[in-house]
């Protein structure tokens, strides 16, 4: 059962001589519940692809379908609400809101949707991610690993169908990376989610169900 599908997705920046082909015809499909790792060197277009999948960016050509819905046909507001309800992002740079404390950061997507956070569930995630005791702290006082875990907790809190993670362990040492990854893997199994993860680390990628490699904007190995 496919949850995510791209057809001939292209993304060009600039034009003429300056044209940069970030993505040059990517066909990809992800099954429900799958853990997919996208590997590739920096500048290969991995992040661009992830942005496309999350509806953060619009492809120059081609289509991105999530659950049979085409993203490019959605209106701006619909896309935003879609993101809020269906997708959890884990960014390489965490993207935590500095003015909010840990707990508030975690429940932010829920609150943005007008939901009263399910306290028990959220505290479950906080326990799971070993963030107990940090709830009221502000994010800039946390270590990199803790911030990354807050970002993961945030992605999990709204129980999204898909989690898109861009180098979720990019800023972490190998020990913390392994821990964080184990957690991600376990949570998607527990909550029936699909995880698409960018990494350039083969060691990390071995935990995925499937690995695809992107080189110069194309998938070169399935």
């Amino acid at each position: 059962m496919k949850i995510l599908e791209t057809k001939n997705v292209k993304k060009y920046y600039g034009n003429g001589d300056n044209c940069v082909k970030a993505l040059d015809g990517v066909d990809l499909s992800v099954d429900k519940g799958e853990l997919l790792a996208i590997v590739g060197t920096s500048g290969s277009g991995k992040s661009t692809l992830l942005h496309m999948l999350g509806g953060l960016d619009i492809p120059t050509e081609g289509s991105v379908m999530i659950n049979g819905k085409e993203l490019s046909k959605m209106k701006e507001e619909q896309l935003t609400i879609f993101r809020r309800r269906q997708i959890g992002f884990v960014f390489q740079n965490y993207n935590l809101v500095p003015m909010l404390n840990v707990y508030e950061n975690i429940v932010l997507p829920l609150e943005l949707d007008g939901n009263k956070p399910d306290r028990k569930y959220v505290h479950g995630i906080i326990d799971l991610l070993h963030l107990k005791g940090t709830e009221t702290r502000f994010t800039n006082g946390l270590s990199g690993g803790q911030q990354q875990r807050v970002a993961i907790a945030r992605a999990l809190a709204s129980k999204p169908a898909i989690i898109l993670a861009d180098e979720p362990t990019g800023n972490l040492d190998s020990k913390t990376s392994q821990e964080v990854l184990g957690l991600l893997k376990m949570s998607i199994k527990k909550f029936g989610q699909t995880l698409v993860m960018i990494t350039h680390n083969n060691e990390i990628a071995q935990l995925a169900d499937r690995i695809i490699r992107i080189e110069d904007g194309r998938i070169c190995e399935g």
Binding site: N67, M74, I81, F82, Q86, G114, N115, K159
Partner: peptide
Amino acid sequence: NFLEETLMARINQKIVR
């Protein structure tokens, strides 16, 4: 339809999930 800023859409979203 679950992509609207309405209460129904929120419930629909849960139903879909």
